[in-house]
């Protein structure tokens, strides 16, 4: 989707973007960006939008996204600078929202998705590759406010060195949200004994007619798999690289934009 391409180099502290036709938008947060920014994005009913946020500079941004009826937003986020990001995302009925997030350095990320209209769908997929002493705090909440909405959260983390990651995943099902289908899964690959992962899944369910699940795994590289690959001639480095790539591959393969995929590669 590269028709109606729009690149915005963020330089002001406040933006109101009304997207009223299907297309591609990129928000670039580069050197010289204000330290505190407010951005409101409204997507008109029925529009199909790909939007990429690319962070190369430290900043704090508060977002509000409104996704109209039957609209679709595919949202990429490449956080590679010290960022503090806060989102409130509101979805109207029959809308769909796919978020692909990549964390490569210290980020404080708060995402609240409000499924306010019936039959809306949201999928939050995140990959964190952390090195040195980076730390990520990700608080992702999906709030089911209306009937028959579907949500999934999939958080995959690769932690090396002295890194730390906190994932607080929350599914909130409000009283009127019958027919909810909510899933949450967090998987972590630890490459270092000094890294720390804190995964806190949370479900707050106030309706009986729902289907919700959560899961969490934390492990290190499978030594048998490393041996298997090395016994075919791969160096230990290549073997580990292939296994780490394999760990996040299912999320990367799902990204609908070929250029975004490149950024997510190991």
């Amino acid at each position: 989707m590269r028709n109606a391409v729009k690149h915005i180099l963020v330089s002001d502290s406040s933006y109101n973007l009304n997207i009223s036709e299907s297309g591609y938008t990129e928000l670039l947060f580069s050197e010289g960006v204000p330290s505190d920014i407010n951005i409101n994005v409204s997507i008109t009913d029925g529009c199909r939008v790909h939007l990429l946020e690319k962070y190369d500079a430290e900043c704090r941004v508060v977002f509000r996204y409104n996704i109209g009826k039957n609209a679709r937003l595919v949202h990429g986020r490449l956080a590679a600078a010290h960022n503090n990001l806060v989102y409130d995302i509101f979805q109207d009925s029959d809308s769909s929202y796919d978020m692909y997030s990549l964390y490569k350095s210290s980020v404080h990320d708060t995402v609240n998705v409000h499924l306010s209209g019936e039959d809306s769908v949201c999928n939050l997929k995140s990959v964190a590759f952390l090195h040195d002493d980076s730390s990520v705090i990700a608080k992702h909440s999906v709030i089911h406010e209306a009937k028959d909405c579907t949500s999934s959260q999939y958080f995959k983390t690769v932690l090396d060195d002295n890194t730390r990651c906190d994932f607080r995943g929350n599914i909130i099902v409000q009283r009127d949200a019958s027919g909810t289908d909510g899933k949450q899964l967090c998987k972590t690959l630890m490459l270092s004994d000094d890294a720390k992962m804190n995964a806190v899944p949370k479900l707050e369910i106030m309706n009986d007619n729902v289907k919700c699940s959560h899961g969490n795994t934390i492990g290190s590289l499978d030594e048998n798999a490393v041996f298997y690959l090395c016994s075919r001639g791969l160096s230990a480095y290549e073997a580990k690289k292939l296994l780490i790539d394999g760990f996040v591959r299912e999320i990367i393969d799902d990204i609908p934009d070929a250029e975004w995929k490149e950024h997510f590669n190991v």
Binding site: A225, L229, R232, L242, L243, D245, G246, F247
Partner: peptide
């Protein structure tokens, strides 16, 4: 007992090896 390696395609693996 050949090891199962999810996420790594046979093709990529054979090519690298």
């Amino acid at each position: 007992y050949p090891v199962e390696i999810p996420g790594v395609s046979n093709l990529t693996f054979l090519k690298t090896a």
